[in-house]
Design a protein around this nucleic acid. Structure first.
Lengths: 237, 237
DNA sequence: GAGTGGTCTAGACCACGCA
DNA sequence: GCGTGGTCTAGACCACTCG
């Protein structure tokens, strides 16, 4: 039932991860794979392109597909290391504190960021993320009321994201992130355990639905010592 | 001579950028475009997938391809804002100071990062980037001697990258970045104008050639107030 | 010249949205 | 039910690498 090219992709990913296909070696050629998986070459190529995009292989014209040494990378290849991952990696218990949950008239900045009309309301959610007893991350979310009619403290304490995707059936399709370093605001100082740190890392997140409408603006403010971002960039020529 | 799907891609990009196809509207359907450009549907789809990957459109099954409002984005959609860009944006004159240029035996850390043998030598280049009279960025490059036989101060003061691609014909194919925030090292303090800042943003860069060999490791250390990173992430489902 | 990946085609069927 | 995009096929030609 799943896609053919996705199953082929996953199959090869497993072989690479397990070391069955060692780094720096060539994958079987597209024509060989076509026969092995009993499919057409274009379908094989779709799977290989996925592998390439996700950093598993490097395709070279006239030669073949080289397996990249991923052992150096701790995945996910790209993206912010999420709060839960970070916590589980450090073997610490994560905890979320909901500091604020309200439906209000957005100020000018938020209204502009979310491209709202003058009468639209937004949910404002402020949460602190705690790990090993330390308040590490301050998340400020602004969600358009048009798409999210109701929101409770329970949902915010768990996962807003899950609620949106599974309960409300909203599909998040892409996001634009901006990362900068800033002075801690008074709010940061009061809600985070900043210890001696003089800066916070601010990740501004613009989240779009699958009909290309902007519906959420999120600011995630991290204590600098616990921040890490990984990016995998393929040259586009 | 150029690719068909690329010329179609560029054609549509132009139409979107010029506003000829306004944001939030639907592109003609794949079948219409197929006839317009007198080609096959798969070729149209290649062009549309490129548009989608680069943030110009959002494809929705059963509906069509929606043009995304890119006017909100200041391009490049993804990636580090480069030193020269940054400088030109602020209307300041950029300057590069070469602090060190040497061919040496790598220490354990660098040897491990570059996956070198015990007898391989590396170029070490340390440069300071100055803008508006302030030393903002400290770049430390380590290049494998195997691929870069010679290197001069002139090249380093200009652009190492250009030298590699145009003089040595090395093709950089992809890079993995890691971004963290760290305490300034003594070297940072001496070579950068850190003023009151207590942190530096460190971008570790692993650069690969098109045969998937790792050949350069770069550390770019930024004063936090001048750092900005933009990322455009499409959900991969 | 044999083999590789890159592009392109014409056609098929499916899953989804919308009226 | 019609039109949309998503998947898949079998085959063609090209550009490139390498012996």
């Amino acid at each position: 039932m799943t896609n053919k090219y996705l199953t082929i992709y996953n199959c090869i990913v497993e072989q690479i991860k397990s070391g069955e296909i060692p780094p720096q070696t060539l994958l079987p050629s597209e024509n060989e794979l076509k026969d092995q998986f009993d499919t057409s070459r274009e379908t094989i190529r779709k799977a290989l392109n996925l592998l390439s995009q996700n950093g598993y292989i490097q395709k070279v014209r006239g030669k073949g597909s080289i397996v990249i040494d991923i052992s150096k990378f701790d995945f996910p290849v790209s993206g912010l290391v999420s709060f839960k991952e970070l916590a589980s990696k450090m073997g610490k218990k994560p905890r979320t504190i909901v500091n604020e949950l309200s439906l209000l008239k957005p100020d000018g900045y938020i209204r502009q960021q979310l491209q709202l009309g003058s009468k639209d309301l937004v949910w404002k959610v402020v949460r602190t993320r705690e790990m090993g007893g330390e308040k590490i991350i301050l998340d400020k979310d602004f969600l358009s009321n048009k798409y999210v009619p109701s929101l409770t403290e329970e949902i915010c304490a768990d996962s807003i994201y899950q609620y949106l995707e599974h309960e409300l059936d909203l599909t998040i399709s892409f996001a634009k992130k901006e990362i900068i370093v800033a002075e801690p605001s008074p709010e940061d100082r009061s809600l985070l355990d900043l210890e001696g740190f003089h800066n916070v890392v601010v990740i501004k997140n613009y989240v779009y639905l699958d009909d290309a409408t902007l519906f959420q603006y999120t600011e995630s403010r991290h204590r600098p010592d616990k921040f890490r971002f990984v990016d995998f960039a393929r040259r586009t020529h």
